[in-house]
């Protein structure tokens, strides 16, 4: 029933029971190359930059700052930003501040379910070094050990203006072709996974949430 051919290419999925192994794909994520033609890649990056669909998943206290983005005052629609309720269709994941271990599990799932190219923006201090929760027993201190981050917007919390600024910064970065978080995640998959499993004790999901 397994869809992979050689064992090197498959994941162990040891968090699953034998029965459940059947139900989840055990394929390893694969990195993608840029388009062979430079102009096409640039055009694609332009399109990606101008159509940023944000996953509507408020992970921390910063989630409250996302809401005003769509209001008349900030109107992020102008920049091609739109909210999207399903990770499958989203391209931007905004980590709204601190991430507890419990939330991290959800973040990992949602991130893995997004289709590349995908971008991550972290808000506030907490994802950088834990911020005021630096010694909390259940808060992540250094977020990019678990998910590759493309951009940090500092402040506690960054105001919507800062968020708009960081979106524009992200657009610049995308257009420049520098946002390869998805590939980094794949290339260093084992390292990321090991980090994730270190903090998430009850790992009862597949190793990669396709």
């Amino acid at each position: 029933m397994k869809n992979s051919l050689n064992t090197d290419d498959t994941l162990e999925n040891s968090g699953l029971t034998e029965e459940e192994q059947l139900l989840f794909s055990n394929a390893r994520p694969r990195a993608y190359e840029p388009y062979p033609i430079k102009a096409v890649e640039d055009f694609a990056n332009w399109a990606r930059a101008n159509s940023l669909w944000i996953l509507a998943f408020g992970t921390g206290c910063g989630a409250i700052e996302l809401r005003p983005l769509m209001t008349a005052r900030f109107d992020a629609n102008r920049f091609g930003v739109a909210g999207r309720p399903t990770p499958r269709q989203s391209s931007v994941f905004i980590i709204g501040g601190y991430a507890s271990v419990k939330t991290l599990k959800r973040i990992i799932r949602s991130y893995e379910q997004m289709q590349g190219p995908k971008f991550v923006i972290c808000l506030g201090i907490c994802p950088i070094n834990g911020g005021m929760y630096f010694d909390s027993y259940n808060t992540i201190n250094q977020f990019d050990q678990y998910i590759p981050v493309d951009l940090y917007a500092t402040g506690c919390m960054p105001r919507p203006e800062a968020l708009v600024a960081s979106i524009m910064a992200l657009q610049k970065k995308i257009k420049a072709g520098e946002c390869d978080g998805a590939n980094r995640y794949v290339e260093n998959f084992d390292w990321y996974k090991a980090n994730q499993k270190k903090v998430i004790k009850n790992w009862d999901m597949p190793d990669y949430n396709w």
């Binding site: 869809n3 139900l23 989840f24 794909s25 394929a27 990770p87 597949p206 396709w210």
Partner: peptide, 13 residues
């Protein structure tokens, strides 16, 4: 790169 997935590989959070 289309990956053929299994039945539980659906969106969930």
């Amino acid at each position: 790169k289309i990956q053929k997935v299994e039945q539980f590989n659906i969106v969930f959070a």
